[in-house]
């Protein structure tokens, strides 16, 4: 990473901070966190601060990826279509500086948004319950930041790869749907190719470890693995599962000994790969793109 990358990131962040869209996204996150808060407080008998954490974490699972994708999908292709990329690339920053500067700048945006939402959560918790389950909050904030930046990576990667806003939007919406709805079908397909049959649990209701790992590779599942580990409960992910087990963070579903690659912290490098890999692929495409 060079100074030029940081210069691009800084300008990008300054630009994004002025954006109405960013503030509406932060507002949406904070609003929904508040809504969840009061819904739980209203419905649960003698609620405690800890009761909030599970539902808040669950809603973050869907919202944070969405907000990150929206924050990132125009980052490069938007400048390409407007022509501001010509100004940017006439200056010393090169294409690599632009792609990775954008990744950093937009990551800053999503980190700010997540922190704002958690600040709201902390203030509400203190105001309503006069107590703060700090470890749980920090754990979920950390998982949200990792997941948010992973989805920023996906969005910036898509944005670097395509030549029009429409394609970028189609790309990120498509990927979001894949993670949410079709990951199960995709992994079932892989299972069938390798094993010659559709995935199914053994008679004791347990699954093969590698197949469970394939579920973990889905960044939304990886988030659930992390938050379930923090909360010590199994909320699982909101993804659609026809074949795969619903709750892949539960080690009881794994047949035989639990392999090291299915220990909870593995979800962190999985999210880091999602942060970087799409951007590297996007850069390889963008490096040779005709920007005239």
């Amino acid at each position: 990473m060079t100074n030029r990358t940081v210069t691009v990131a800084r300008k990008d962040f300054e630009d994004a901070v002025q954006s109405k869209m960013l503030w509406s996204l932060i507002g949406l996150l904070v609003f929904i966190v508040g809504l969840i808060y009061f819904a739980v407080w209203w419905n649960v008998d003698s609620p405690e601060a800890i009761d909030i954490v599970g539902p808040a974490s669950a809603i973050m699972q869907l919202l944070v990826p969405l907000v990150a994708l929206i924050a990132g999908y125009l980052s490069i292709v938007g400048e390409r279509q407007s022509g501001s990329i010509k100004v940017l690339l006439s200056l010393p920053p090169n294409r690599r500086d632009v792609v990775f500067g954008k990744l950093l700048g937009r990551s800053g945006v999503i980190v700010s948004a997540v922190l704002a939402a958690f600040l709201a959560l902390v203030l509400l918790s203190l105001a309503v319950f006069q107590e703060l389950p700090i470890v749980d909050f920090l754990g979920i904030a950390g998982a949200s930041i990792l997941t948010g930046t992973a989805f920023v990576g996906i969005a910036v990667g898509v944005s670097a790869m395509v030549s029009s806003r429409g394609k970028a939007m189609a790309g990120v919406i498509g990927l979001y749907l894949v993670f949410l709805l079709f990951w199960d079908l995709l992994t079932a397909g892989i299972y069938r190719l390798l094993e010659g049959e559709l995935p199914a649990p053994d008679p004791s209701g347990q699954w093969e470890a590698w197949y469970v790992f394939l579920q973990w590779l889905n960044p939304i599942e990886a988030y659930a693995v992390l938050t379930d580990a923090v909360l010590g409960e199994s909320f699982g992910a909101f993804t659609i599962s026809i074949f795969a087990p619903q709750n892949v963070s539960d080690s009881d579903i794994i047949a035989g000994e639990v392999p090291a690659y299915l220990s909870d912290p593995v979800a962190i490098p999985i999210l880091l790969v999602w942060f970087l890999l799409p951007v590297v692929l996007g850069y390889l495409r963008f490096r040779t793109a005709d920007l005239g």
Partner: peptide, 8 residues
């Protein structure tokens, strides 16, 4: 055919 950053 360039563009600048409207918000800056």
């Amino acid at each position: 055919g360039y563009d600048l950053y409207d918000r800056l």
